[in-house]
Nucleic acid binder design. Sequence first.
DNA 1: TATGAATGAGGCTTCATTCAT
DNA 2: AATGAATGAAGCCTCATTCAT
Lengths: 193, 193, 193, 193
Amino acid sequence: MKFTNRQLDIIQAATKLIGEKGIQNLTTKNLAAEIGFSEAALYRHFKNKNVIISSILEYYKDEIKDVMFGIIQDSTTGILKLEKIIEFLFNRFSSNPAIIMIVFAETSFQNDIQLSEQVHSILKQKKMVFEQVILKGQNDGSIRMDIQKEQLATIFMGSLRLTVLRWRLSNMNFDLNKEGDILWSALAKVFIK
Amino acid sequence: MKFTNRQLDIIQAATKLIGEKGIQNLTTKNLAAEIGFSEAALYRHFKNKNVIISSILEYYKDEIKDVMFGIIQDSTTGILKLEKIIEFLFNRFSSNPAIIMIVFAETSFQNDIQLSEQVHSILKQKKMVFEQVILKGQNDGSIRMDIQKEQLATIFMGSLRLTVLRWRLSNMNFDLNKEGDILWSALAKVFIK
Amino acid sequence: MKFTNRQLDIIQAATKLIGEKGIQNLTTKNLAAEIGFSEAALYRHFKNKNVIISSILEYYKDEIKDVMFGIIQDSTTGILKLEKIIEFLFNRFSSNPAIIMIVFAETSFQNDIQLSEQVHSILKQKKMVFEQVILKGQNDGSIRMDIQKEQLATIFMGSLRLTVLRWRLSNMNFDLNKEGDILWSALAKVFIK
Amino acid sequence: MKFTNRQLDIIQAATKLIGEKGIQNLTTKNLAAEIGFSEAALYRHFKNKNVIISSILEYYKDEIKDVMFGIIQDSTTGILKLEKIIEFLFNRFSSNPAIIMIVFAETSFQNDIQLSEQVHSILKQKKMVFEQVILKGQNDGSIRMDIQKEQLATIFMGSLRLTVLRWRLSNMNFDLNKEGDILWSALAKVFIK
DNA sequence: TATGAATGAGGCTTCATTCAT
DNA sequence: AATGAATGAAGCCTCATTCAT
């Protein structure tokens, strides 16, 4: 196990707080109150607040990575993998909106060099995964080859992110899964050879 | 004029601070120090800090809007308009990276309802502009019609945003304009009928 | 003239501010806004804020003193003088409630030794006036002699002050003049021989 | 217990500060210094400064109420109750002058609607207690009946308050208990049938 | 493991006042 | 006579963190 139960409690509570009002809402006071114990107790489980944030990032990175690798291995063609991934992600965000602000948190941690680098590294890693999937798709003939995998990955991730962001900003007042379907039917036309 | 000179000084200094380390770096103390006067002096020019942030958002909204409308009217086909816009934006961000964190600041203001709505409204407005441009492109035959303008706008804005974000996170260690060209050649293939 | 016109404007505006929300509401900013000019302008007319407060105290001391001396000389018996005075005062407070907080401001200026002494001196002076009136009443046979003038003055002033205070605290939601009449009919029974 | 020990420390220190120089002297900085810990520590014991003030008011309201009810039940006739009460109050103020500014603080909180109402409500409650005592005195024949209990209460409380106020303004340079006796002998003559 | 108490640093804001124009 | 700009001091409050119990 990477985290103790108590640490998982904290990660979950922190996710909720960030999901509600952004990182500025993640104070030790709010966090302790959300969990239902004292602020001091937090320091039994994590060295400091930055380690908590860092752990949150790791936690969701792993969680999403695991599912994505499952999808990648199960699906046959590259284009199908992308379809399954987008389906999973929109579903995940839809059922747990709080994690959106963490998964797309790149701009939130400029403050702190170490967190900023961690966040950048996670983004690069995700991009590489998508590029590999797209490359396979180009090789298996399901994805067009006249556009480089890097640009297709940018288009895929970028439009996905923006759609999810709009959903958050609208206070989730449209059906994200439906919007995801519509986006995918557009992306599919764009990606197919 | 919408703002006094001193207000423009403050907006510029605030932009710099946010550009460097995010909104958490925009404190009254840092801001006053950046401008070179006392914290109290800020309050002669703006009612409070939220009004400063709000003004920054308005300022860059207007600035970018003006140029975009110029481009929209000058260029002939829809696809050319998009090309000019992307060129302008990458150039703008490249020459003044600080504004990136403001123009893409949507996640930064969840804290504050009013700012959050302002930021959402700006995003919606931008999306509509892109949709109109795309619609014209579809009517003039320069842009494909088998994908709805809304989805094309999402693809356009999303991939543009993600590219710029990666540049920031990489500490601007690649040539944003060149990357913009590459992205555009991909998008062009995607958009053309 | 003791004060210039501009100084009288300032005294009047300050009275209004204090009347509305107490001395804590008398800030240079509020005062300037109330008058309709700049804060800096205040310093053309008064050396500083304490001098303004001091002037307010003097102004109303004089104003009330003048009327009271008129009453004292006009009326015949001591008891009639008291009646006229109480009538005048309740009428004055009723028509201009703002001055109540100034005329009864003794607890407001503890902060500042000089103002505190000024306020004490005004109170002592008022008390002496009432004692003289009562003494005359005792001599002319209209006021009982078995209680010392000092105690009768305390009873008179004290009950008057408390009645007016209650009126202010109730947001002036009863008829002060009527309540003054009722109080006076009680006091008259108490004072008469 | 209504308050923790630390809260009582804070109430006591605040009382002292207000007693010395009025509410304007009750700043978080002064208060923390008086107690001997940091400003931040205050906020572990009270939510904010207004709650501190509110607590002070409650504390002394209760304290005085308890004693007064004891007196009311012990004494026989109405007039005797009044005598005991005045004796107790002058003694209390004499031995702890700081609380005077709190018990007579009605004009100090106009600034704040909630405090202002609290202070008004306390005053009304006290008035009612005195009116009840007086009513009993009128029924048991010890207090005159030709003046309404409301007016007698005003006379009683008003003259008491003014006497105490004069003592404070004079920097306590006369013997308050002795002055209380003198006042009472006057009031007794006034109240007795 | 947990907490109550405490704190230094810093947050935003208002205060009365000054000064050049 | 008046003002716009500025300021040092101070206001209230929250932050992340520590430590003794």
